[in-house]
Nucleic acid binder design. Structure first.
Lengths: 151, 151
DNA sequence: CATGCTTATATCACCACATTATGTATCCGT
DNA sequence: ACGGATACATAATGTGGTGATATAAGCATG
């Protein structure tokens, strides 16, 4: 039994963490206000808010869905008034998608709702447990920014 | 500004943790082997493995989906040979759903796959980051077992 | 012990969101 | 100016969800 493989440092943690993250995922997905925006919609709006207007194809790649899926999503978001489609004057093929004030508001509202729900749950944890979650946030952020193109 | 409300201890952590968990959720959902079992299917199989045979309605409530959705899911799982439907002799209305060996195997296989994928990503983190995730596992487990009936 | 409410599941019609394959318009290099 | 590449839209399809409603079994009661 080797002390440390070149890549996988002891597999116990991975299995352990994986199980927890699986359960967490299902838990968080089910937590949401049911009739609301899809996960991809939230991600897309977030990207638009963070990085400004963006072409449709870039958005699709960034959110990890196909271009047609993004076309449909943007259409729905546009109908709901959360984004606008404006065609680029320089290249009339491209569509610039831009978040609207209503979109920002929807995003903020959702965040507030979810934060409130989570806060309520976090309150039921011990001080130590909360602290351990807060301490894990940087690692979680690193994790979510890893491997953006290996898929 | 009160030092501690009766319920919500400082809201900074909640907002902070919420954002991270939102991103994590999208990340993990998109990580999965695409053509595989749905999130609800995995949850259901997991519940059956953990708690033994269960009525359909209980399963639906436990997984947070409607009864028709669970009826459909169980039908699909049954067709795939991952569960069995047996009608309760005491109350002929109820259906007992039971996981099969194939179901357990599917679950184990999936876990292995995901653990491997995650292990690969965890390897890209620093030792400290990994440690912080491992340390957060108990809190995550507590969290996911909270509020099972408040919805 | 028949009538009627409740409970457990199934079925139906529909919708949201994704995929692949393909169409259409625009740009660009030779 | 033509031909291929690029950006987006459209079409056909699949999966997994919802609410409304049907069916059938249990249960309570007059």
């Amino acid at each position: 039994m080797e002390i440390s493989g070149p890549a996988s440092t002891r597999e116990h943690p991975a299995a352990h963490v994986t199980g927890a993250l699986e359960r967490l995922t299902r838990f968080l997905v089910r937590l949401g206000p049911r009739g609301d925006l899809s996960l991809t919609a939230v991600g897309t709006l977030g990207t638009l808010e963070r990085s400004g207007p963006c072409r449709l194809t870039e958005l699709a790649a960034h959110e990890g869905v196909t271009q047609p899926a993004m076309t449909q999503l943007v259409s729905r978001l546009q109908e709901s008034g959360l984004v606008t489609r404006t065609s680029d004057p320089d290249d009339k093929r491209v569509v610039q998608v831009r978040i609207t004030d209503a979109g920002r508001a929807a995003l903020a509202g959702r965040r507030e709702t979810r934060a409130a729900m989570l806060a309520e749950l976090l309150d039921q944890l011990s001080e130590d447990e909360r602290a351990s979650l807060v301490a894990a946030v940087p690692a979680i952020d690193r994790l979510t920014h890893l491997a953006p193109e290996d898929r």
